[in-house]
């Protein structure tokens, strides 16, 4: 007699499987860990790029931005590419016929992203601490909330992309968006250092809102109210859009 494993065990199994898939390829490890780690060390240790730090140490400005970059890399770019190719190969169709079902697939997708992000925060946070980072502990809760909302937005946008476009198009677009946002999206570089119109636009995007929210919360411990509101709106809109247009098969 066939019986399914308990729901939580199924979702956890799928989360582990997804996490391994997210980190299973060298270019993804590069995107998720190596690149942010290099950015962290390079920007903290040298002043090759002028970040306009004002008072305080460079690492205190750089570390939150690097974490935002890592979240963007995993929840958006890697996830979009992974889902797009899995969808094309029929993986989503097959898993939808197992006890996992579409609900478990979604749970596993989010779970996989969270597992990888936990790893990223530990590794990058660890490096930053070694480099002398002293985050404002009062803002830790707000930072985690910002990461959670941004993850919801990015993952929903990734699924939206992966569920509607050809896999090759997703590969190109997801990488392009990553590079553009990393360079001018107020992720690594604070919005105040960007030209006026770019900064205004960047802080309305989930990437910029996350970068600014983490810098505010982890440097001063203050509540990044505007940024959290922007992230919440994105999370809702992107989830609704993904729900409307995403096709598992």
């Amino acid at each position: 007699m066939s019986a399914p494993a308990p729901p939580l065990r199924r979702v956890l199994a799928q989360s582990g499987f997804e996490a391994r898939a997210l980190l299973g390829r060298s270019e993804q490890v590069l995107l998720a860990l190596v690149l942010p780690a290099l950015a962290l060390v390079a920007l903290s240790a040298t002043d090759a790029v002028e970040l306009g730090l004002g008072e305080g140490r460079r690492v205190d400005v750089v570390a939150p931005g690097v974490i935002a970059l890592a979240v963007l890399a995993t929840a958006f770019t890697s996830q979009a590419i992974l889902t797009a190719f899995d969808r094309r190969a029929g993986v989503l169709r097959l898993l939808a016929t197992t006890p996992l079902g579409p609900g478990g697939l979604l749970g596993g997708t989010v779970g996989g992203v969270l597992v990888v992000q936990l790893l990223q925060v530990l590794v990058l946070g660890g490096i930053a601490l070694v480099l002398g980072w002293s985050p404002a502990l009062a803002g830790l809760g707000w930072a985690l909330l910002a990461i959670a909302l941004a993850t919801a937005s990015f993952t929903a946008l990734a699924l939206l992309l992966a569920g509607t476009l050809r896999a090759e198009a997703v590969l190109g677009l997801a990488n392009l968006v990553f590079v553009l946002l990393a360079a001018g999206g107020a992720v690594l570089i604070p919005a105040e250092r960007l030209p006026g119109p770019v900064a205004a636009l960047a802080t309305l995007l989930p990437s910029g809102a996350l970068g600014e929210a983490l810098r505010t919360a982890l440097s001063t411990g203050a509540l990044p109210g505007r940024e959290l509101a922007v992230l919440a709106v994105w999370a809702v809109l992107a989830s609704l859009a993904a729900r409307r247009w995403f096709r598992w098969f």
Partner: peptide
């Protein structure tokens, strides 16, 4: 179309699907 995830190893996929059952 098989529906096998290209990024994984054969054994890993079978073990994973097995883990979805009691």
């Amino acid at each position: 179309d098989g529906g096998l995830p290209n990024g994984a190893r054969a054994g890993q996929v079978l073990r994973h699907v097995a883990s979805l059952y009691a």
